[in-house]
Simulated assay, not measured.
Amino acid sequence: MPDTTPEFDSLVPAQSFDRRSFIVTSLGAGFALAVQPVMAQTAINTDIAGLQAGEVKVPVKDGEMVAYRAAPQGVAKAPVVLVVSEIFGVHEYIKDTCRRLAKLGYCAIAPELFARQGDPRSYASIPELMANITGKTPDAQVMSDLDACVAWAAQQGADTDRLAITGFCWGGRITWLYSAHNPRVKAGVAWYGRLVGVANEFTPAHPTDLVGELKAPVLGLYGGLDTGIPLETVEKMEKALEKGSPAARASQIHLYDNAPHAFHADYRPSYRKAEAEDGWLRMLAWFRKNLV
């Protein structure tokens, strides 16, 4: 298959990861086993009225990657928001997030970035999922796949000159990385993404390492009670941003003192309605400010 993303070739590091066949070729219904039981009574369910919504196939360098796309019907040149999932992949919560954004006029695309490594929805425990899926998904692969999503969106008539990215947990970290990777990104919103970590062949750099390379301002939304992201790492990132690129210095971190990890995930016990709604409004304001 021909390369559909030539404009990004110089931005993608040498491909040191092994190419695999695509294990995930369609998006299932429901939620990941690792987060069962789901708190259905709090889950938001956004309808598709007025939207073009559903599964799509995005051409990438080694085949086709499945993704979920939601966009307003009849709207030419809608701005694009890449939506990057938690470690659980593109399940109903991520799809609904795309529909919420589409209702507001955005073309939202959530790619299944673990498609070569396996189906995260099929794992019953988080440690097993992380060992077999997320821990073996190279950052370079993710950056290239997100580039392919941008190229695909442009081919569909969306406005990739107004490009944003948001992500949750694992996707929050990716939001920081992609905002340093692609100069076409205008805004990023990272929901409780890890900021530091050990470098290895799959994750050679982390957000605190890349503040000098940030090309778009990022709004970081973090919980003060997040046991997986210590406050000292958030403070370290804030100090690093002050000495980073112009986009880094324009970035902000907002801390919700009484919120745990995954406070926006309305299908999990960690959901905090007030903080989730406030963060959503902050995200939308960030997009309005920077997607000009």
Rank of each mutant, 00 (worst) to 15 (best):
V211E: 00
P120E: 06
A78V: 04
S26L: 06
F22T: 12
A131M: 12
P204I: 02
R282I: 07
V60A: 00
N132G: 03
G197N: 00
A153D: 01
D278H: 09
A67M: 03
A40T: 15
P111Y: 02
R99P: 03
K77H: 12
C149S: 07
A158C: 15
P2L: 10
P183G: 10
S125E: 09
Y68I: 03
L129W: 06
E213V: 05
L219I: 09
R121C: 11
A78Y: 04
E55H: 08
P230K: 10
E128W: 06
I44F: 12
H206S: 00
W286K: 13
I23E: 11
P183A: 11
G54N: 08
T42W: 08
S245G: 08
S21E: 15
D226S: 08
T134Y: 06
T5V: 12
P246D: 13
G188N: 09
R100P: 04
L195N: 00
A190T: 02
G28K: 12
K77P: 01
V292G: 14
D47Q: 03
G28H: 10
A70S: 11
A124L: 15
R69P: 05
P72S: 04
L195Q: 04
A262P: 05
M130V: 06
P59R: 06
P59N: 02
E232A: 13
K136R: 10
R162A: 09
F168D: 01
G220D: 06
L129C: 08
G167N: 01
P230L: 08
K243T: 14
R194I: 05
A151Y: 05
P217S: 03
L104M: 14
Y256D: 09
Y222F: 15
V75T: 12
